[in-house]
Design a protein around this nucleic acid. Sequence first.
DNA 1: TTGACATATAGACATATGTATATATGTTTA
DNA 2: TAAACATATATACATATGTCTATATGTCAA
Lengths: 106, 106
Amino acid sequence: MFTGMNSNQAKARAAILKALAHPTRVLMLDALSRGDRCVNDLRSLAAVSQPTITHHLEKLKKAGLVTERRAGKRVIHHLACPCILEALECTLGVLQSAEKRQKSAI
Amino acid sequence: MFTGMNSNQAKARAAILKALAHPTRVLMLDALSRGDRCVNDLRSLAAVSQPTITHHLEKLKKAGLVTERRAGKRVIHHLACPCILEALECTLGVLQSAEKRQKSAI
DNA sequence: TTGACATATAGACATATGTATATATGTTTA
DNA sequence: TAAACATATATACATATGTCTATATGTCAA
């Protein structure tokens, strides 16, 4: 009998997806996909305070998506797992098929 | 100048990722990837009440991930956008690379 | 048409999340 | 070493989320 994914696997996967599931964090990962950034660089992506950016980075680090290193005054953040960009990418498919459904419904 | 993803794109993508980002919903999507299911079938995946399952399905429907049709007493749910399974799949890569990091840290 | 079954809705509630302000810590440079 | 800059931590708070129980609605079958 094939029972599919188990509860622990689902929990682990959901935890990673949760780390992605915020507009600001999506923007941060997108930026990091094009190069490493310090906190201040990332801050310019969204209209939120510096502690809020730090907080979002904390979540990404805990999920294993981002690593950091200090370089002088700055703390540089790096995309630890570029494979996660596929998850970002594949949301596009959902948006497009939703669009298609809307058009055909006219 | 290349500015990457914009705020609206990020919001739309995050909304879809948010719909995925719960253990029960991950289990439901995994089950639906192997065939259509009614609410009661899906209920057996997790130890939660029927209204809670209905609530999770509502979120998946709003995100455009799932569609439904009535068949007699049952309401059958269908994976509208199988491409979203790639997002589930790619979390595996993150988990594995986290595992690898832990081992090398010993 | 009544009873049984399947699903949806309403309402309540505890916890999680995202945000800000104020402040502390760490690092460089004058 | 003092000032300036970059980041982190503490705290508070409003809103979102996940869950339940109770109840309503929809559908079939006797």
